[in-house]
C-alpha cells in the first residue's frame, strides 16, 4: 500500500465560519495506481490534493492521518513537511503554468529548486536532460524563460520538474484543463508514461473531466460536497456506478456519438449545498431521486465489493 488516508478533515477559516471543504476522507492508493479524482467544482478536490502536501494559511487541519509508504506525514506542520515535499510527495498545482517564475530561466529555476533540497544541479542534470527529451522537448528549453513556451510545452516541463526526484506520490491538479484537445491528449499520455517509467509510484489525477480519467486512470474516486461518494476501478465507475450522484453525473456527459436528436441527455437538477453549513445526513439528499427516510443519517463510505466503496444507503442495501 503506498498511500493511506484516514478520516482526513481540513476546513477553511472564513469570517462567516468554517467551510467544511474536506470532511472525513478515508481511502488508499496502491503502488502503481493512478487514481482519478472527480466531482463538480467546489466539491473539495483541490483541498484534498493540497492537504496531502501543503496547508496554506487559511486551511485548518481538523483531524485525520496520512500515511505514505509507512511514514506518517505531518501535514499539519509546514516545516515538518519540508522533508517529504517534492522528494516523497509532489504536486502540480492547478494553474501551475502561470505560476512559474517569469524572470528565471527554466534551468536556473530547477537548479535552485533541487539545491533547496540539498541536491546539486550537476547531480541531476543528465537525468533532467533525459526526461526533457522523453517528453518531446528540446534540451534548449532549459535556457529559455517560461513565457517563451507554449501552454502544452510549459505543462510538460512542469511535469518533468515536479517528478524529478522520483516522488512516491504525484498529485496533478487539472493539468489538462486549459489545453486544446490534441495537446491535452499528449499531456495526459505523458502522465501515464511517468508512472510506467517509474518516475512516480502512484498518482492522483484531479479533473472535472471524467472522460480524461477514462483514458488515464486505473481507479476513480468521486467526491460530492466535501465527502467521498464512490471509489472503484475506472471501468466500474463508468459502466456500473452505484452511487446515484455518480450515475447521474456519468449519464449527463455528452460524448462523441451521442446527439440531442437521438438521445436527449439530462442534467442533475439543483446545485450542491453550501459547505459553510452543510446539511446533516447524506449531502446529496436534496438532489437525490432515491432519497428516503434513512438518508437523514449520514451514510458511511464502505466497501461493498472488492475494490468498490460507496457512501449511499440505497447502494449498500440498507433500505429494507
Amino acid at each position: 500500500m503506498s498511500l493511506q488516508v484516514t478520516d482526513l478533515r481540513v476546513y477553511y477559516r472564513t469570517l462567516a465560519g468554517d467551510v467544511k471543504a474536506l470532511d472525513g476522507a478515508t481511502f488508499s492508493i496502491a503502488d502503481k495506481e493512478i487514481m482519478g479524482l472527480a466531482g463538480e467544482s467546489g466539491c473539495g478536490k483541490s483541498t484534498l490534493g493540497n492537504s496531502l502536501i501543503r496547508l496554506d494559511g487559511r486551511m485548518k487541519y481538523i483531524g485525520g492521518s496520512v500515511n505514505l509508504d509507512g511514514n506518517e506525514l505531518p501535514i499539519w506542520d509546514q516545516t515538518g513537511m519540508n522533508e517529504f515535499r517534492f522528494k516523497q510527495v509532489s504536486v502540480i498545482p492547478q494553474y501551475a503554468m502561470s505560476a512559474m517564475n517569469p524572470t528565471r530561466k527554466i534551468g536556473k529555476m530547477i537548479g535552485e529548486l533541487v539545491e533547496s533540497r540539498g541536491i546539486s544541479y550537476e547531480e541531476i542534470k543528465s537525468e533532467l536532460d533525459r526526461r526533457v527529451d522523453l517528453v518531446g522537448l528540446d534540451e534548449d528549453v532549459l535556457n529559455r524563460y517560461p513565457m517563451e513556451l507554449s501552454g502544452g510545452m510549459k505543462q510538460r516541463m512542469v511535469m518533468v520538474i515536479s517528478t524529478l526526484l522520483d516522488p512516491s506520490l504525484l498529485i496533478a491538479d487539472e493539468v489538462t484543463s486549459a489545453l486544446d484537445v490534441s495537446t491535452q491528449r499528449a499531456v495526459a499520455e505523458t502522465l501515464v508514461s511517468f508512472r510506467d517509467h517509474g518516475f512516480v509510484k502512484s498518482m492522483i489525477v484531479i479533473t472535472h473531466d471524467v472522460s480524461i480519467l477514462y483514458q488515464t486512470a486505473d481507479t476513480i474516486l468521486i467526491m460530492y460536497a466535501g465527502k467521498l461518494a464512490e471509489k472503484a476501478p475506472t471501468k466500474t465507475i463508468i459502466e456500473k456506478p452505484l452511487h446515484p450522484y455518480t450515475r447521474m453525473l456519468i449519464s449527463s456527459l455528452p460524448e462523441v456519438g451521442v446527439r440531442y436528436e437521438t438521445k436527449k441527455l439530462v442534467g442533475i437538477p439543483g446545485s450542491p449545498p453550501s459547505l459553510l453549513n452543510p446539511p446533516t445526513g447524506c449531502r446529496f439528499r436534496a438532489r437525490c431521486p432515491l432519497a428516503f427516510a434513512k438518508c437523514a443519517e449520514e451514510p458511511p463510505f464502505i466497501k461493498i465489493a472488492n475494490d468498490h466503496e460507496v457512501a449511499c444507503w440505497k447502494a449498500t442495501g440498507s433500505d429494507a
Binding site: 484537445v181 472522460s211 477514462y214 463508468i238 459502466e239 462523441v256
Partner: peptide, 23 residues
C-alpha cells in the same frame, strides 16, 4: 464526425477523450 476526411479533423477527433473508447 462519422467520416472525418481532412487529416486535421482526424487528429482532432482521435484526440477527444471519449467515455467508452480509449484513444
Amino acid at each position: 464526425f462519422g467520416n472525418p476526411t481532412h487529416p486535421y479533423t482526424k487528429v482532432l477527433i482521435s484526440s477527444v477523450p471519449q467515455l467508452h473508447k480509449k484513444w
